[in-house]
Structure formats: structure tokens, C-alpha cells
Write a protein that binds this DNA or RNA. Structure first.
Length: 572
DNA sequence: GCCGTTTTCGGCCCGACTGTTTTCAGTCG
């Protein structure tokens, strides 16, 4: 549904329709994408709930209703008749927007990427007003870049690359303050580019140093205060050079998201202020009243400080206005890790090694949860080997009393929702994690039923990585998340946030959905070796983006309380 | 298309960089 509204916006843009109407469609698309409830169900039960969201008006509501009822949208179908659909992908080319595309189409009858390339090669572009030789070269470059498109990167890569850039600049430039902003700071599951902010008296030296980084393959722009580069790995990075007294304002501005910033600037305007990357100004006399520190901006706008992870334009400003933001979970709240593998299956370390490492993280407990027999390629445990492992855990526990070691399993959900081990065996364990590792291409209904049935088993405590997605590599399998969450609630099953940076499943939006429906979560590293225990932080980031507090996450609980939840004696 | 402590009509977030101009339009974030 979000994609349909975005497509309407794109077509209207090429048609040079009213820009504010276009923005409204864009905004509607973004709102729908970020909703923490199911649109189809809500529009039938309680359309007022949607209409009450700022940015959703009568027109959008009507189109949503139409889409739910008929599956199509008359306006979009009409618009599609008016321009060739092959124009739309051209919007993705760098430095090419709706205006130019429209001109190419109308004046040179260009309607595909290939025709555009040909026209540039034949030097026809320069015949148009406002176009020259450089325009042609830029178009050809943009087409080349588009064809080797890199897409988005995992958060862990984004953090690594931005940290390296920050350290590189720190080592070469005299600076008071330097930080990575953007989606890296918001800890989004994937990042599209890197934004670095730096304060420096010698602005041109900072820019020069940046564009001369050894990994630069392309300089997209390089001005007095701003530069954009492409790094060897295909990731774009931007640098902004600032004065000390603007650093906080710039940090706010470039941390975004766009939706959050637009809402914040609208609020500022209503209050008689103007915000930009240099500070907060009074409109009346233009006097700057904040800029050095980010927290001043929120304070002067009469909002409680909004953590970067929440800045997605998902209602956080309204909550901050009422001083009712949730107190988000932090890494230090985590008291244990409930999902990890050992050498017995596809892990690389022993139980002793994992437990010892757990004590170094300051954990009170861990759970050993190796794979079950169906996962043959991981040498999954059958009943006999699982019983042996239980005995071994008892022995290790006696040796390392500092940490509680729960006996567990990550049991496969077979087709039809049956579990891979008998109840009789599962009953001997402290913790049972269920997950799907096979037959990914079932229909939405079949997959949902399969998972819901598995959760009905009385011994299942946690459903692991429910959508099976691998970020930037594998799409999630089709499931109806609302039904899964509801089944979890009915059966007192917790949902896992798999902290592996290529999974992060549940997603932030689904975390919030689960919380709102009253389901508990667990953040697990799914470690297959000692280093992977560090992944816990990414799970915490996602939980924070899903507005979770320690209370929503069972592995922040003291051991006794955790046991009551796992025994299904207590839930919420 | 959306919205209202100035408005049901008339506004709607803000600035940097580039290439083409000779004061600015288009694009981007």
C-alpha cells in the first residue's frame, strides 16, 4: 500500500503536479510503512484510528478503503495511462529528477534508460536549454552507477565504516567535535550512506582530507562546507564542516529521519522558531538561541529528549510533548543470553567456553540451545545426544557456579507445525526455542498456520527469528505477523529479537506491534562462537527502535523471575 | 492532499552544491 502511494507521488512529480500534493502522497506512504498495526484490519474495524494520524486525511483514507475493497486504486491506474512506466526508474539516477526527465521525454521523446544513454552518447542532450557537455557526462556516469547499484548495507558494516572515517579524520584534522549522524546514529537495521559531522577552523583542509581518503573511488561533490564521496565498498559518505556553536543543531538535523525533522520544524515554526543545521532561531528577530548542544533544541521546543533510535516520525514527538516517552532498554539491562550454539552442532566453542565468556559479559545466566536433528547440515541433536548434553551442562554448572546455564534446544518446526523432538524430551529442558529452517516458500496462510501450531506446544518458550529474513540477501518468508503475535500471546510464548546483524528479526516495527499487543520479547545473540556474543548490542538497538523498555524483554529479568516466565507461571 | 491558538482558504521545512547561467533552476539530503 505504501508502494502504491509512493508510485502515485512519482508519477505526479514527473507531471509537475502540485508539489504539496505530491508531498502529501509521499508522507502517506511513509506513515503507512511505519504503522505498528495492520491497515486492512483497522480500516474495517476502526477507520477513525487511521484518520486521526496527522498526514492521513479524507483523500488518503478513501484510497486506502478502495485498495482494501478492490485491490486497486483508480487514480493510480489512470495516472499510469498518462506516462510511460519506463520513466519511473530514471528517478533513481543521480542528479536526475522529475524536471529533467520530463524535459527529456517531451523534447527528445526519451522514455527509457537506454534511450537516455543513447541520446547522451550522441550529444543530443546539450541541445536542450540549461544543458551542456558536463550534463551529458554526468548522465552517463549516473547510468553506469545505477547499473552496479549497491543498495543498502548492514548496520554493523555502517558502524564499522563510519568509525573508521571518524578515526581517520581525527588523526589528520584538529577538531573539537566529530560524530557520525544519519541512519547509523539512529541504528537503523540497514544504512544507505554515512554522514559525518566535524567542527574545524580550517574548513577546506577538512574537506581535502576527506576526499583524499585512500578508499575513495569517486568524489560526487566537494564545496566549502560539504563533500560527498563514494567508498570502495560502494557506500556513499558525506562530510559537513561546522562551527562549534552549530554542532548540536547539525547533529539534530543530520540524524533525521526526514519525517522526524519535518515534524520538528513544523512544530518550531508554530512556536515562532526556525530550525536549520546551524541552530534554533527566533523568527521575530532572527536571534539564535541554541545550536551548540543537541539537547537544547529539544528542550526549547518543550519536548523531552528523544533518543536517536526513536526519531522516525512514528509518533515520538507527540509522546515527547506529553513527557511520556518510554524509558528505553539499554545494553546494561541485559542479564543473560538465551540462544547460543556449541561444538555439539554448528557452533565453534564448548559449553565451558560459552559460559566463561558469559561471565565476562556480566551475565547472570545463559541458555545453551543447539539445533535439533532435522537440521542435518548442522549436525542437529537427536534425543540421545540431547540427553548427553543435559548431563554435560550439569557438570559444567558445578564447575562454574557464577553463572546459571539453562538447558535448552532450538527445535525445528517441521512442515505442518509439528516439532522435531518429542514432548517427553522437551519436558526435561529449561527452555525451548522453536524456529523454521526449511520449506521457506509455503503460502502465507500455510506458513502462518505452521508457526502458530508450533507455538501451541506447551513446552515452547520462544519463537526465534519469525520471518527468516536475511538483510540485503533474503526476503522474509510470507507470514501474517498479527496472527503470529496473537498466537504468542494466547500461548504465553515470547518472540525473539535475533541480534545477528544480518537478521534483526523481529524488526523494529514488529517489536512495537508485539509490545502493543502485550507479548514479551527476548533479545538473543544466536551465537555460534565467542565473538558473536557481541551481537547482543544490535538486538538492543532494534529493541530501542521498537520502543521497548526492560520490562518488555525477559532477559533483563532476574533469574527467578525469568524462571517463572519460562515455566509459564507468569507472563506480563 | 492536509491542516487550523491568524485562517475552511491559503499556506505548506531548509540550505548546499553544480552547471548553466549572468541571477538561477534542479537536485539532494
Amino acid at each position: 500500500m505504501a508502494a502504491i502511494f509512493a508510485e502515485i507521488a512519482n508519477i505526479l512529480e514527473i507531471q509537475e503536479s502540485n508539489p504539496f500534493r505530491i508531498r502529501s502522497f509521499r508522507r502517506a506512504a511513509q506513515i503507512i510503512e511505519n504503522l505498528s498495526f495492520n491497515v486492512t484490519g483497522t480500516i474495517q474495524k476502526d477507520p477513525g484510528k487511521l484518520r486521526a494520524i496527522p498526514g492521513i486525511g479524507d483523500g488518503t483514507l478513501q484510497k486506502i478503503e478502495e485498495l482494501v475493497k478492490t485491490g486497486t486504486c483508480e487514480e493510480l491506474e489512470k495516472l499510469k495511462q498518462e506516462i510511460p512506466s519506463s520513466l519511473l526508474p530514471m528517478l533513481k539516477l543521480q542528479n536526475l529528477g522529475p524536471k529533467k526527465i520530463s524535459v527529456f521525454w517531451k523534447k527528445l521523446n526519451i522514455s527509457t534508460l537506454e534511450e537516455l544513454e543513447k541520446a547522451a552518447l550522441q550529444q543530443k542532450i546539450r541541445t536542450l536549454p540549461g544543458m551542456g557537455e558536463k550534463s551529458e557526462a554526468k548522465i552517463l556516469k549516473a547510468i553506469k552507477n545505477y547499473r552496479q547499484i549497491q543498495g543498502r548495507f548492514q548496520l554493523d558494516d555502517g558502524i564499522e565504516i563510519s568509525t573508521n572515517l571518524v578515526n581517520y579524520l581525527k588523526s589528520k584534522i584538529k577538531t573539537n567535535r566529530i560524530a557520525a549522524a544519519g541512519s547509523v546514529r539512529r541504528r537503523r537495521e540497514t544504512v544507505g550512506d554515512i554522514d559525518i559531522l566535524i567542527t574545524c577552523k580550517n574548513s577546506s583542509k577538512a574537506i581535502q582530507t576527506f576526499v583524499q581518503h585512500p578508499d575513495v573511488t569517486q568524489v560526487l561533490a566537494s564545496g566549502n562546507t560539504k563533500a560527498s564521496i563514494v567508498l570502495r565498498r560502494g557506500l556513499q559518505a558525506d562530510l559537513r564542516v561546522l562551527e562549534d556553536n552549530s554542532f548540536g543543531a547539525a547533529l539534530q538535523y543530520f540524524t533525521g529521519s526526514k519525517a522526524h525533522n519535518v515534524a520538528l520544524r513544523e512544530r518550531a515554526k508554530r512556536m515562532g522558531y526556525k530550525i536549520n543545521e546551524y541552530g534554533l532561531f527566533k523568527i521575530q528577530d532572527g536571534v539564535k538561541i541554541a545550536g551548540a548542544e543537541e539537547k537544547e533544541i529539544y528542550h526549547l521546543l518543550e519536548l523531552s529528549f528523544i533518543p536517536p533510535e526513536m526519531r522516525e516520525g512514528r509518533g515520538e514527538i507527540e509522546q515527547a510533548d506529553k513527557q511520556e516517552l518510554p524509558l528505553l532498554i539499554e545494553q546494561k539491562d541485559i542479564k543473560g543470553d538465551l540462544h547460543m550454539h556449541t561444538k555439539a552442532t554448528d557452533g565453534q566453542n564448548s559449553i565451558v567456553e560459552m559460559a566463561t565468556a558469559g561471565t565476562k559479559f556480566g551475565y547472570d545466566y545463559i541458555a545453551i540451545t543447539d539445533h535439533s536433528q532435522a537440521l542435518a547440515m548442522a549436525r542437529g541433536l537427536n534425543e540421545e545426544r540431547l540427553l548427553q548434553q543435559i548431563e554435560e551442562i550439569d557438570k559444567v554448572s558445578a564447575k562454574i557456579p557464577k553463572i546459571k546455564i539453562l538447558k535448552g534446544i532450538e527445535v525445528d518446526i517441521l512442515s505442518g507445525g509439528k516439532l522435531d523432538l518429542r514432548d517427553q524430551v522437551l519436558s526435561k529442558l529449561d527452555i525451548v526455542i522453536a524456529s523454521v529452517h526449511s520449506q521457506f516458500n509455503l503460502s502465507k496462510m500455510e506458513m502462518t498456520d505452521r508457526i502458530c501450531r508450533a507455538m501451541e506446544n506447551q513446552y515452547v518458550n520462544i519463537l526465534a527469528h519469525p520471518t527468516g529474513r536475511l538483510l540485503t540477501r533474503r526476503e522474509p518468508y510470507l507470514i501474517e505477523m498479527e496472527k503470529i503475535i496473537d498466537a504468542a500471546l494466547q500461548n504465553r510464548v515470547c518472540l525473539e529479537i535475533n541480534a545477528h546483524p544480518s537478521r534483526l528479526d523481529l524488526s523494529d516495527v514488529h517489536c512495537r506491534m508485539a509490545k502493543e499487543m502485550g507479548v514479551l520479547l527476548s533479545i538473543n545473540s544466536d551465537s555460534h562462537n565467542l565473538q558473536m556474543l557481541n551481537y547482543m548490542q544490535y538486538g538492543v538497538f532494534t529493541a530501542r527502535r521498537g520502543w521497548l523498555t526492560p520490562n518488555d524483554v525477559i532477559n533483563t529479568y532476574p533469574f527467578k523471575k525469568l524462571c517463572r516466565v519460562l515455566g509459564k507461571k507468569e507472563y506480563n
